[in-house]
């Protein structure tokens, strides 16, 4: 296999600092808000999913998914 396309979450002007914790969290919320607004099958939400998966550690995402299932997610959805 040769060259593969490299693509990731872009730098976000809302999060210009070294600390990117909020960047990851915000992208996660944006995705779920997008899905809530446009439905599960909406393709325009997919980019937010890509962004948060690029930025957030898998462990964090797992924990948040669990919290959402139990209805105890701390963020505004």
């Amino acid at each position: 296999m040769g060259e593969i396309e490299l693509k990731t979450a872009p730098a976000d002007f809302r999060f210009p600092t070294t600390n990117q914790s909020r960047h990851c969290f915000t992208r996660y919320i944006e995705f779920h808000r997008c899905v809530a607004a446009k439905g599960d099958e909406a393709t325009e939400c997919e980019k937010f999913a890509k962004y948060y998966r690029s930025l957030c550690p898998g462990e964090w995402v797992d924990r948040w998914n669990e919290q959402r299932e139990n209805g105890i997610f701390p963020g505004p959805l």
Binding site: L6, K7, T8, A9, P10, A11, K50, R53, S54, L55, P57, G58, E59, V61, D62, N65
Partner: peptide, 28 residues
Amino acid sequence: VVDPAMTIKAIGHQWYRSYEYSDYNSSD
């Protein structure tokens, strides 16, 4: 300065390090 081309997550543990390349993931 420029948008990064890829993201690597380096997660420290006692005492190893785990790395995640998740730019190509299509599920969690």
